[in-house]
Design a protein around this nucleic acid. Structure first.
Lengths: 357, 357
DNA sequence: AACAGGAATTGGATCGATCCAGATGCACGA
DNA sequence: TCGTGCATCTGGATCGATCCAATTCCTGTT
């Protein structure tokens, strides 16, 4: 064979798209044989396979998705709900995660379908977002094979609902409130991540290390906080009066830092999120303190903001690429009705050190 | 009827999912009549419609997507390629745009399907991303009805390719390099956005206003820059030696600002992107200059980073929600074979003022 | 030469919706 | 009474793939 490049599909005429039957005619075999060439090539004699393959290439044929979906009762689509992002929150998690999920899904032969919750509001949920809105439709119309549900600040109410309908799904986030839940999940060990941060600032000589976290009703927030508490005690340091809790906003981070600076004079702030950490940076700037020189600050999520804010914010980084891979992995097991080896996987984050510490 | 809540689908037994034929049986009508109840209710007598509706509700029926897609030759899916985001770039654009697109699509009865370019690399494109990778497959297998292609830094090579295959698509971004292109597009007037920024800082009393932009080969970059040039001249101000060009990184922004500060002493920096603007902020911090007090800085994109960085970065905000609406709108026209009234729409950005100016 | 047994291949039925052409019912005017 | 016309409803064919059961082709054995 000469170097004539790839066998380009040569779409001679833009007539009706070729079907499996067209290919069968051209190759001089039956429809089933073409189907086998696509799905179970080992059933064909090598020379037959070759002949079919050439017909496929020359026609530029791709199997019609709808027909395949109808027959196999599966769409090879994974549904992911994207909720309205809160402006002013450095929640970069979604962006990075989404890319990784699309990549991993592709490798497994799936595509990601996005849907939203808005517009499904009924009386019961005029305020706030109905946690199961949008899932029902896609499920009933067999538009997707499975869902990926991501944990929110407060937990994961979708999981129970989906489980009760035995809809296939994998959660990003542990079943905090229902330890008995049996669905597959993947999560990142927040406490371990915060412990990394503490070790890091302790190594830098800090002893008065404050925690700026979320409210008590946030499972994730309390998990991360426990990392602070235990790591501090492990280092023989006191946590007394060094903790603040509030919402996930820049404003809260700023207020909390100003208050702590005034009363307790911590030399380091470890924060539950980058958003809150940015608030701390605001406070330092207003107090003419230089992050990284006068006071250390560590965030959580390694968001874009952390990467670009001067002088660079040290932050706990979740292994989202790995999370996505594991999720797709578990999804594959779930969809092929394999017994799930291990329903939950807890991954370890890393620490990205920048100049703020 | 009493207040018994909504007529909940009462999924008695989780047997086989109900089909249109099931509904027809229950309602005592033919399949076609059920189909009409769904797609052309005006064809039914009111009492028949009511009867069918009740059967649908009581069975919890939703039409099977695959079957419908097969018959109608359309998937009601819109394809969007997500390219690997560059870490350390404050490109928040995608996140906000994606949400808006999902919302708008939903209103029009569409869903968004994500796909990626990786893994399609062949000899010709080992380095860099093949601009048309991934489209081919989805197109041939009729997996999506249309594409949304988003402009990149350098232009939009996909557009021409898709147009040549007459694949339905709408571009976010003007056909810079092919003014004769006839495909529908939506774009934001970057020059006008920068002009807003200039007006703003001029009003604040600045006269030595520097431009920190992208390289000459970026159409978008040059468009934004032209806003600076023209607005400056409109105000009777000089642009001489006040311009820097480079790549879209924090590092470049910092270098450019330091160089300009040393030689030209501008009092304001207007930047082509938030990423570059963050670099400028770094430079100011290193030079012990306070943004918003000593020197004004304006970014472009109104990214999360701009919102949370202390003290808050003034930035040009693209009306992405409106962009998404227009895109879906044009897509609808294109798909219903209506003549497109006006192939291109140029929208105006706004300026979000924060403390950096 | 006859035959078992596996490999390779085939044609009809099927998934669940919509399209299409035709059938039925009904009201109205001639 | 008999069409005529319109609104309403029906059953068979169809979209393009895969499932299934059955058939043909090989090859080696006795």
């Amino acid at each position: 064979m000469h170097e004539t490049g790839k066998a380009e599909p040569m779409a001679r005429h833009s007539g009706p798209a070729p079907t499996l039957a067209t290919v069968a005619d051209v190759a001089g075999v039956s429809r089933q044989t073409v189907s086998n060439a696509l799905n179970s090539p080992h059933l064909l004699r090598p020379e037959t396979l070759e002949r079919v393959q050439q017909a496929i290439d020359s026609l530029g044929y791709s199997p019609n998705r709808a027909a395949r979906n109808l027959r196999t009762r599966s769409s090879h689509l994974i549904g992911l709900r994207v909720d309205p992002a809160l402006e002013g929150t450095a929640n970069v998690t979604m962006d990075r995660f989404l890319h990784s999920l699309v990549e991993s899904s592709k490798d497994a032969g799936y595509h990601v379908l996005l849907f939203s919750s808005e517009g499904y509001v009924d009386e019961a949920t005029v305020h706030g977002v109905d946690p199961v809105a949008g899932y029902e439709d896609l499920l009933r119309s067999t538009a997707v094979d499975a869902f990926v549900v991501t944990d929110t600040y407060r937990g994961n109410p979708q999981a129970g609902w989906l489980e009760s309908r035995d809809a296939p799904f994998v959660a990003f986030g542990r079943p905090w409130d229902v330890p008995a839940a049996t669905h597959p999940w993947v999560d990142v060990d927040g406490a371990a991540g915060v412990a990394l941060a503490i070790d890091h600032v302790v190594e830098r000589g800090h002893t008065r290390i404050a925690w700026v976290g979320w409210q008590k009703n946030s499972f994730i927030g309390e998990d991360r906080r426990s990392g602070w508490v235990e790591s501090m005690h492990g280092h023989g340091l006191s946590t007394s009066r060094l903790s603040a809790r509030g919402e996930d906003t820049v404003a809260f981070g700023r207020r909390a830092a100003l208050a702590l600076l005034e009363t307790e004079r911590p030399t380091a702030f470890v924060c539950v999120s980058d958003t809150v950490a940015m608030g701390v940076l605001h406070a330092l700037q207003e107090s003419d303190l230089r992050p990284g020189r006068d006071i250390a600050v560590v965030g959580f999520d390694d968001s874009v903001a952390a990467q670009v804010v001067p002088p660079g914010l040290t932050s706990v980084r979740q292994p989202l690429e790995q999370v996505a891979r594991e999720i797709v992995n578990l999804l594959g097991q779930r969809l092929s009705h394999k017994p799930i080896e291990q329903p939950g996987r807890l991954l370890s984050p890393t620490l990205t050190v920048r100049s703020s510490s």
